[in-house]
Design a protein around this nucleic acid. Structure first.
Lengths: 148, 148
DNA sequence: GATGCTTCTGCGATCTGGTCGCAGAGCGCT
DNA sequence: AGCGCTCTGCGACCAGATCGCAGAAGCATC
């Protein structure tokens, strides 16, 4: 199946870069693939510990760092609170509601205009992948009267 | 002079809301006005402690919170690291270079297009005031070859 | 399948940024 | 000056994340 291909592919890349394949690492990758959405390091740790209770949070952090160095995953800051992780080929931006925490995924090209404008006016290359775009979702924006 | 008018104005507002005027509070406000740029709570504490060494960091945090409740100041998260504070009437957005930390202030209307687009396409009300827009400044973007 | 070099891991300590509870100081109304 | 209530310094505490260490385990080689 495709999922296990992906896992083995990452492990091969890891080995090719002098890394070792261990059972905590397999479990962390598996948890990352099994999780739908945007897991935090803490959530991943919890998932892994269901089957391997001794895997330590710092191991998860260290391995996620390494996966990031290898370009396999990215981490994103969705406003306050812990960072969340996802596979790097899952390219999209995040709109986060500051009120209810809803995360809306929007395709890359949605922010193209902004890119162009800030590039021409300020020579600034926006990179909204690592930090979310904050605001309020339709429901929350409608529910609360805007401040005076 | 206008600066002391401003200080007294804030203190009057504070009193009008049942707050008290104390020498730590005067000093914190003064430090905020004297600082050009975007001070962190820690920097403000240090500035205050030059003249009043006993003022505690937690006092600074508490007073900044209160000033925020009164609508006098806002705090902004410029990517990683501590939040920075500025007067609320100083309305602009922040572009932050993830590489060198440069902060570019851009007028409110620069992001109007983005507002409109995200509102019509995703019913999302962008609120980019509380979190900076991250990316790379012209110098850093030019200096480093884009990743393959 | 044993050896040995190197990497990984669990663990606790540590760090940063920020918050909280408490007892006492001090503001400001009268 | 007296009094009620707010504010303050202080240390403890919290979350999220990182680090140093000694021991465990991968894997290339024999």
């Amino acid at each position: 199946m495709a999922a296990s291909d992906r896992l083995e592919g990452v492990l091969a890349l890891l080995r090719a870069n002098g890394g070792r394949v261990t059972s905590p690492r397999r479990a962390i990758l598996q948890a990352l693939m099994d999780h739908d959405g945007h897991p935090t390091a803490e959530e991943l740790t919890a998932d892994v510990q269901v089957h391997q209770p001794d895997v330590h949070e710092s191991t998860v952090y260290r391995f996620l760092d390494e996966l990031e160095r290898l370009g396999v995953v990215d981490h994103v800051h969705l406003g306050h609170g812990p960072a969340v992780y996802h596979f790097a080929d899952d390219t999209h931006h995040h709109l986060v509601c500051q009120q209810c925490g809803l995360v809306i995924e929007v395709p890359d090209h949605t922010l193209d205009m902004l890119h162009r404008r800030l590039r021409t006016e300020f020579s600034f290359e926006v990179e909204p992948r690592h930090f979310a775009v904050m605001g309020r979702c339709g429901t929350c924006a409608g529910r609360v009267a805007p401040a005076p």
